[in-house]
Design a protein around this nucleic acid. Structure first.
Length: 428
RNA sequence: GGCGGCGUAGCCAAGAGGCCUAAGGCGACGGUUUGCAAAACCGUUAUUCCCCGGUUCGAAUCCGGGCGCCGCCUCCA
């Protein structure tokens, strides 16, 4: 399950805009829900390309306002929360374990606090469960405390409770959300339910670009779409989505992940090597005769499988698991080079590739193994090779050859058109 | 300022007290192969893990102190 946070806390401050651009922006402004929807779709597109399995449930925060209000009521009843001026805050002083996940304690935080504290809060570390909406706040709902919107952390508690129960086995998320977001989730959920909220937290480390944090203000932001297309000044080329996936798998989830052109290039090279090997394997299997499975190879495969599983069972050590893919690559290519492996032996290798590299790591994808020349080649570049060759012939008055090239292209539906400056082409 | 994460070869990155005279990938170089290439295969590429102390028979791994990078502590989730 994965949440869609569509309760934007957007403030409509466009009322001041009197110039034409402001007017136009106002006129064409889309509804916040439409904005959330377009980001959601874009996100799923990227995740599909990365070959991520879609969640069974993608609940939306805006669809669970009632449940969120109910949780606020419960916390008020249990005296873990208090209402001030139409807002409801969680009283952190009543929840002993606050800060345990991130190793902080409330006293230290208050001492080190350099934040301006809302006058409504009893305690600077208290956090909002429900916030009163100003009139210009776009998304707001009626509640027992007046019009408002749910607090920053509430949706996660409420939706996980509804669909997964009061205790989760695993909760994922970025390390940057450990405090305060996950800490607040724990406080809300455990205060309400009286049972542990999460058994295991999986916090992945930061993503950096060329060693610096990825941030809009630093202008080093690379979106997945840009990486897939290579349309970014920091990137020298486009990268296969699964090569990006491989780069992510190359490091452990708890280590910082550096996103650089060099790292992407390395991942792409390695990814190509794996894919090409599997392709060659498939091709060979069809041409080779059926006979017994080589016992020695079978034994090696069993060892590699064990190595892979041991690594994955060790807190998802994908880096070591990925190295098993390269062990398989070497084994495969040796078998191909020797040329006397049976179809059974090669199939056994191919099978392990599909299971470990396909089902588990997700970097081997059936549809990417089909050789589709039209998709791979850029037709324009190919035709231009012929055009250059033909123009060389024309320059040398070798019109027989030039006409021959033009006729051959014509046969496959490509028409050349000569102008004094250059030659262009189009489909017939 | 407080809390947390990280610092391993040219680059990416595992390893978390003895199997480490440190996986794997990329790159580079040499070889096999090839008409020449490409691909593939074989080999080489960190006596040392940011620095300085300490604990230990033994430390990249533990402890103390530095230095550097990053995140959170404010809006947003």
């Amino acid at each position: 399950m994965q949440n869609i946070t569509d309760v934007g806390h957007l403030t409509d401050d466009a009322d001041e805009g009197e110039d034409k651009i402001g007017e136009a922006a106002k006129r064409e402004k889309v509804h916040p829900m439409a904005l959330a929807e377009s980001y959601t779709r874009s996100y799923f597109e990227d995740m599909d390309k990365l070959n991520c399995v879609r969640p069974d449930i993608s609940p939306r925060a805006s669809g669970h306002i009632i449940e969120q209000i109910e949780l606020v009521k419960t916390l008020l009843e249990k005296d873990y929360a208090y209402e001030v001026n139409g807002s409801v805050y969680f009283d952190v002083s009543k929840f002993r374990d606050y800060g345990r996940l991130s190793g902080r304690n409330i006293e230290e935080m208050m001492a080190g606090a350099r934040v301006e504290v809302s006058p409504d809060k009893k305690n600077p570390v208290d956090f909002a469960l429900w916030k009163k909406a100003e009139p210009n706040h776009i998304m707001q709902w009626p509640s027992p405390w007046g019009n408002g919107y749910p607090g920053w952390h509430l949706e996660c508690s409420v939706m996980s409770m509804k669909y997964l129960g009061t205790t989760l086995d695993i909760h994922g998320g970025g390390l940057e959300n450990q405090f305060p977001h996950h800490e607040c989730e724990i406080a809300q959920s455990e205060a309400a339910n009286g049972v542990p909220f999460v058994r295991y937290w999986l916090h992945n480390n930061m993503v950096t670009v060329d060693g610096q944090k990825m941030g809009k203000s630093l202008n080093n932001f690379i979106t997945l779409k840009q990486a897939f297309k290579g349309e970014h000044e920091r990137l020298n080329q486009s990268y296969d989505p699964l090569a990006v996936r491989q780069l992510i798998l190359n490091s452990h989830y708890r280590s910082p992940l550096d996103f650089s052109d060099a790292a992407l290039f390395a991942a792409q090279s390695g990814y190509n090597k794996i894919t090409e090997t599997v392709k060659a394997m498939r091709k060979e299997i069809e041409q080779v005769k059926n006979c017994e499975l080589d016992a020695e190879v079978a034994g090696q495969l069993e060892q590699l499988k064990t190595k892979f599983e041991t690594a994955m069972n060790d807190d998802m050590n994908t880096s070591v698991a990925l190295s098993v893919m390269f062990d398989l690559v070497r084994l495969s290519n040796k078998l191909l080079q020797d040329g006397n492996a049976t179809a059974q032996t090669l199939s056994a290798v191919d099978d392990l590739f599909s299971k470990l590299g396909g089902d588990v790591l997700g970097i081997i994808k059936e549809e990417n193994l089909a050789v589709n020349v039209a998709d791979v080649l850029h037709v324009d570049d190919v035709v231009n090779v012929v055009i250059t060759e033909r123009n060389e012939a024309r320059k040398n008055k070798n019109f027989t050859k030039a006409d021959e090239l033009r006729a051959k292209l014509d046969e496959i539906g490509i028409v050349l058109e000569d102008t004094p400056e250059k030659t262009t082409w189009r489909m017939k």
